[in-house]
Design a protein around this nucleic acid. Sequence first.
DNA 1: GTCTATAGACGGATAGAC
DNA 2: GTCTATCCGTCTATAGAC
Lengths: 210, 210
Amino acid sequence: MRDDEATAEVAKNDVAPVPLRRRKAHIRETNGAHLLACAEAVFAERGLEGASTAMIAERAGLPKANLHYYFPTKLALYRRVLEDLFEDWHRVADTFESSDDPVEAIGGYVRTKMELSRLRLLGSKVWASEIIHGAVHMQDILNEHVKPWLETRVIVIDNWIARGLLAPVDAQTLMFMIWATTQHYADFDARIRALKGKRALSQKAFDTFT
Amino acid sequence: MRDDEATAEVAKNDVAPVPLRRRKAHIRETNGAHLLACAEAVFAERGLEGASTAMIAERAGLPKANLHYYFPTKLALYRRVLEDLFEDWHRVADTFESSDDPVEAIGGYVRTKMELSRLRLLGSKVWASEIIHGAVHMQDILNEHVKPWLETRVIVIDNWIARGLLAPVDAQTLMFMIWATTQHYADFDARIRALKGKRALSQKAFDTFT
DNA sequence: GTCTATAGACGGATAGAC
DNA sequence: GTCTATCCGTCTATAGAC
């Protein structure tokens, strides 16, 4: 249905809406993105080893061989999922320095991160699972990106404390507690769903927390 | 065949240290427990599908076939790990009602659960991973044991609130927040280790929290 | 109870026609 | 870029000697 339609369309309509090279690049782009999204879902449900390339390909509606055409190995695909996830996470992380008021900055960060966890629930599970099992496939990301970021945040927090804007708590501890509580709602979705009927009281919970 | 062996042993050594039936049961017991412990470790590190029976057997210092002699299937072994874990968890959970004072009861529970998470770090990871991936292998435990337990706890908390011993927060929310923060230190050990050099500030963190 | 050898299924990856 | 057929390795589980 894919390539035949494209060439047939050009010949029959006597117009070439998009240059071929552009179109081919577009195909690679969309198929790659689609596979990436399906991979994220399957990895979230079954874990790295629990997920098979056949499952991911099937969900994407493609033969297994196509997956290997776009991503050389299963592990490469998994890494791309993690990287993609980190990009989003990092974007959100920067909202931390939007305000000079601790309550507002932390509150805004928590809310945004919560939003992201709800928005990218599947990805958040992949991330969490990876961390739990030792983060062996993302030591690079962790060391090169998250660690420096955390250190700058700690400086900001310590500055707030020094200026008397915040109670004297350990800055790193504070960050971990924020992570713990925000991440929890995403990661432990299954437990929460199983035990409670409804959800969506998170907003209130974190207003209380802050 | 049992009697032949028994008599032979007695005849050679001229002593019968332990009745044979007792000894055979003992072997089964210790080997089973040893395999269970090794399984918990490997499942924690690699996940259900990432772990292989060969790895578990090797860590236990036994041939793979022996593992299947004690546990019929890999999944049966995994389930036993979860059940074993839940037993410990449930024991700790009961400390919640040891005191009639909210602060003391909750504080004691948090401390005990933290202790358990640190003590059974591996098991805690297995549990967390299982939950993240949909808790498909422990719906029974979750529905039959955890849910009723949680409901009784909610009653206790609401009672405290009614008597003015506790601020009027949603009882279920409170329980989730306790879970979130305590569990986090166990589950996200890798992240914490990677980002911080030291650990063991948990005590202070949770004193602050409470 | 222990252990070697192996059956049988499945998974990742590739060849090669279209 | 797409897809079928297939190789080869690994995994669970078992058979059967000791």
